[in-house]
Design a protein around this nucleic acid. Structure first.
Lengths: 337, 337
DNA sequence: CTGAAAGCGCTTACAG
DNA sequence: CTGAAAGCGCTTACAG
């Protein structure tokens, strides 16, 4: 298949490539008839503009990068979709790059920047733990969605997230309200800059406040996959500890855990109440429907785009906290007395 | 943030950009000391090569495009992952583009080709129905994964898929073996070049062969989403027809349908046996675990890559059928007599 | 309103 | 082993 270039279009339309370029870029200083002729040839030859070549010479491209960490993360995929939607009509081109959870988000950002001369980059679901140096080296407007980046204290970094600590506390409080006094935890602890750790810390602190002792034999470290949560839950169950409720750090973890509980003869919510985070669509369809602390994806996406635009216009950085919502579900109930 | 170019590296290393280019491309005709100096500067300046600019001048780029239709399709996402894995070490660069299910896969392919001078393109999960003209216009080695493209009869088009018709028949036969005589269907019928239609046709024919009348009131047209399957199942249930089994065209459809059945007071598999297609990881974790006709993603991915390499080397087109596997699950059982 | 020329970051023959 | 020059497909001042 031949590559059709601007030259081919120019030749076919009998004009110079400058003129074709003007038409393609919707400039107004082109004779209407010339424009029509060029557009006719574009169509006839099936010309598609080489965006990379176009970017090469342009100095100020209105492009924003979106980096999604985690290929198979249903929540982030949904969020990404909402970001693309929110980006419509902003005049910015949104360029998405999906990377492996373990790959460096900063390398991906730099690479995208080099090729597309981004004005800024939105990170979805990344982890900031121990990456302060990398963040500093990326001298570009940055918006972190789903994690708080206030502690980075930079004038070109904004963030939008739920208050993960508080959300964790809320999940625990809800269970405590229902009479639960022994609550297991699935996820991983970590310092600031990582959502799962904050959720667990919030939950543990709420438990302490209610006079419930935190016993780390009721905790198992698991990642954001079905398999990891399933295995973690099995490990936890083998310890033989009693518990009537479980907090996981994501709905996917909940699904894996519910299965492990079921195979161990424990029913949800009859024997164990389960509450997770994110509130993905799937929650409403599983049996039982999953109770979750929902992150409002649409609102997070809209804020992320707004914050990015503000940073680009040299307005100040902001760290927005959006309200999480309680997705009732069917996976929790009052503890049997 | 400044863009670091090959020029900056050249200046810093005290050599010409030609030399830097040689080092970057691992050519052997460079003095080891010069090479070391250049590489040191690459590292120091954090230089990242602008792949687009690099592609621009190159004539024969060993790049293969991978187009995934359907952002939120768990099965295809898994398959894509496997394709990327299978592509490792082939010497080809695999460039993936995820497009909306409704967007044109051919436009995406042409665009990718124009920018990356692809040698060929692998389509994951696309639909060929009524697109014969578009296919013809894409004069590029093409491999269709998950659908059969034999009927296109082209020397530069291969495909790898399960035998969808036969898989549909197998699903039905399995249910018939278990004594089911009234089987509902969820999905959509269509002509050749679309997997879901073939599955349903296979199922219906198997039913006929077993002397079961196909009643279209036991069919509801739904798409590949939880919501669509859930609603479709509800619609079907409202008709008040009796049935003891259900075949859906994907596991995601099964999940939506199982939920609708449950809300209607029907238990799976006690009241209704459910069997779907794909065999995604989630099947093993839902309650009940879902019975499915599994498509072997790893094998499909490996074949797709092999077929593409063969086409590029001007070997002949092939249409490979891989064996589907039965994922037992817990969602089917013998019909109650 | 239009075209010729320079240049974006890179590679590739061609000289030396 | 190395550099200068041309050119990939495009855009952008600059002339006219």
């Amino acid at each position: 298949m031949r590559i059709v270039t601007i030259k081919d279009v120019a030749r076919a339309a009998g004009v110079s490539i400058s003129t074709v370029s003007r038409v393609l870029n919707d400039r107004q200083d082109v004779d209407p008839q010339t424009r029509a002729r060029v557009l006719a040839m574009v169509k006839k030859l099936n010309y598609i503009r080489n965006q990379s070549a176009s970017n090469l010479k342009q100095l100020n491209i209105a492009a924003i990068g979106v980096i999604l960490s985690g290929r198979r993360n249903a929540f982030l995929t949904d969020l990404a979709e909402e970001v693309m939607q929110a980006g419509q009509g902003t005049g910015f081109q949104f360029i998405m790059d999906i990377i492996d959870e373990k790959a460096s988000q900063f390398l991906a950002a730099r690479k995208l920047y080099m090729e597309h001369k981004l004005q800024g980059v939105i990170f979805l679901g990344s982890n900031l733990e121990g990456q302060e140096n990398e963040v500093k080296r990326l001298e570009l407007p940055q918006v972190y969605a789903t994690i708080e980046a206030k502690h980075l204290n930079s004038d070109h970094i904004s963030s939008v997230s739920i208050n993960n600590y508080q959300a964790g506390a809320k999940a625990a409080e809800r269970l405590i309200e229902l009479g639960h006094r022994s609550i297991a935890l699935l996820g991983y602890f970590s310092k600031a800059g990582d959502s799962t750790g904050q959720r667990l810390h919030g939950a543990v602190d709420a438990m302490k406040k209610a006079g419930i002792r935190y016993d780390d034999r009721l905790f198992c470290e698991v990642g954001f996959t079905l398999e990891s949560a399933y295995k973690g839950m099995k490990t936890l169950l083998k310890r033989g500890m009693d518990f009537t409720a479980l907090i996981t750090c994501s709905d996917i973890m909940s699904i894996g855990a519910v299965r492990a509980l079921y195979e161990h003869g424990k029913r949800v919510p009859k024997d164990v109440s389960v509450i997770g985070f994110d509130g993905i669509e799937l929650c409403n369809y599983t049996l039982p429907a999953l109770t979750s602390v929902r992150q409002p994806t649409r609102q997070i996406a809209a804020e992320a785009v707004r914050l990015m635009k503000a940073l680009i216009q040299d307005q100040k950085a902001e760290h927005v906290l959006v309200e999480c919502q309680f997705l009732p579900g069917e996976s929790i109930q009052e503890v049997k007395s």
